[in-house]
Design a protein around this nucleic acid. Structure first.
Lengths: 250, 250
DNA sequence: CTTGACTCCGACGCGACGTCGGAGTTTTGA
DNA sequence: TCAAAACTCCGACGTCGCGTCGGAGTCAAG
């Protein structure tokens, strides 16, 4: 038999044969005058034993041991089974993630649960601000850790839709704040927004304190991305919400 | 932030960061006087967007496109989902194989269905012959192709257990044939075996002709491994079975 | 005697990092 | 204040199981 015949019989490529020779898994057969390898049936058997094992997931490095010590295989099979099960788990989780993404219509780099928090595309949010919102959600989504996004989304989903709808135009107004926005417009936005956010703020009060590191990072992002006006407005709104929440603290 | 802080926040290793720098996925941040990288929150966001995508199975090479073209992602997600599903299929098949092996108690390099055909360990088969039997089964198991082993095993399983039990001592006697076995012992083995195999032979007659290439390979294995006496005996038994099967053929 | 199919070998490529070694830097504690 | 500990840098090779390429030689057929 020549390389290609053996390879075809065993359902592998010629390159695979050469690889097995290189790592010493398959003994080098005698050569023809011209240097061609001539295999016989024992090589086929050896090769088949190898392919059957690799099909089970046995690494090539473990094969020398496996092939002539059938006892040592037992634990290996356990291990391989565990590995396969774990891998299946990961892949199933991945598929679930993909499905969630597809049904939520959100971009793939943020948790699908948070897609409720995104501004609607027809809200006319400037691109810069859309990116900001996106980055903020990415950050929040990760900093909340395992299951966090779901909880946060539940807060909003649980709230009455009306409130959300009342908030949307406010954030839209926030996103277009600039140095030439008239002062009374800014002031009214702060008022409206503070009162609009009040019910959410109450709900948030019942949840554990946010990780200070996370807050610091979020604030760093705000400072980097938002215009000075926006940053000032945001801080005032948050401060006033906090005061109303904890009026006792001086 | 230093490398390790960023890495920990994002749940990756420092080496991963360096890798992303190397392939241009993550921009190089400014350095400290001593040359240390100082990251900020925007690097964290960028990194998180990357890790979320890779968790879905997106290859790093596709990320530059994915990160700033959310539209191109759709088909990619389809593809990734298909890949994941296919991989899960393969792993499930592998686990099924492993389970079959463990319940059949056969070594991992031959199809579990064929374990019925193995000699019992207490039959006192010489090691050399046990190896021969094993190799033969490996060969047959593969040459029969998809589903073949199951069919073959069905032939034996369907047969009455008594017949199998009557055959076992005969193969045991066959395996210890040597140059100094008395002639009448050889002759009686041929007789006993031929009649013992007759019912199986009849059943086999109903199945399609064996692949001539496969037969040739099996015969090559016999010739290589069996002693001359054994090879002669085997051929006589097979010839006599064939004659009884097709008495019309001269 | 050419043509085409096949084989040989060496060497690099892939994907996503892990690991090692040696040199420099920053932080911490005595 | 200064040394030890912890951290960071970079380059380069290793992992795993082969795929792919290139150039040279070999074999069967026309």
């Amino acid at each position: 038999m020549l390389s290609s015949e053996l390879a075809e019989l065993a359902g592998v490529t010629v390159r695979t044969l050469r690889h097995y020779h290189q790592i010493g898994l398959l003994p080098e057969p005698p050569r023809s005058i011209g240097g061609y390898r001539r295999y016989d049936v024992s090589d086929l058997v050896r090769l088949l034993r190898i392919t059957r094992s690799t099909a089970l997931g046995v690494p090539l490095s473990a094969l020398p041991a496996v092939l002539d010590d059938p006892a040592a295989v037992e634990e290996l099979l356990d291990e391989l089974d565990r590995q396969a099960a774990a891998e299946i788990e990961r892949l199933n989780a991945r598929r679930a993630d993909i499905a969630a993404l597809r049904s939520s219509g959100s971009p793939p780099d943020l948790p699908p649960e948070l897609s409720v928090l995104r501004s609607a595309p027809e809200a006319g949010v400037p691109e810069e601000m859309a990116r900001y919102e996106h980055e903020q959600l990415v950050l929040i989504g990760h900093l909340l850790g395992e299951g966090g996004p779901a909880e946060l989304a539940a807060l909003f989903e649980g709230a009455d839709r009306e409130m959300i709808e009342r908030l949307e135009p406010l954030t839209a107004r926030f996103y277009v704040l600039g140095p030439d926005t008239p002062e009374d417009e800014v002031a009214s936005l702060i008022d409206d927004w503070t009162t609009g956010l009040a019910p959410l703020s109450e709900r948030l009060a019942g949840t554990p304190e946010p990780d200070p590191k996370a807050s610091a990072l979020l604030d760093e992002l705000n400072e980097q991305t938002l215009t000075p006006v926006q940053h000032r407005v945001l801080r005032r709104v948050l401060r006033r919400l906090e005061h109303e929440q904890r009026p006792a603290e001086p």
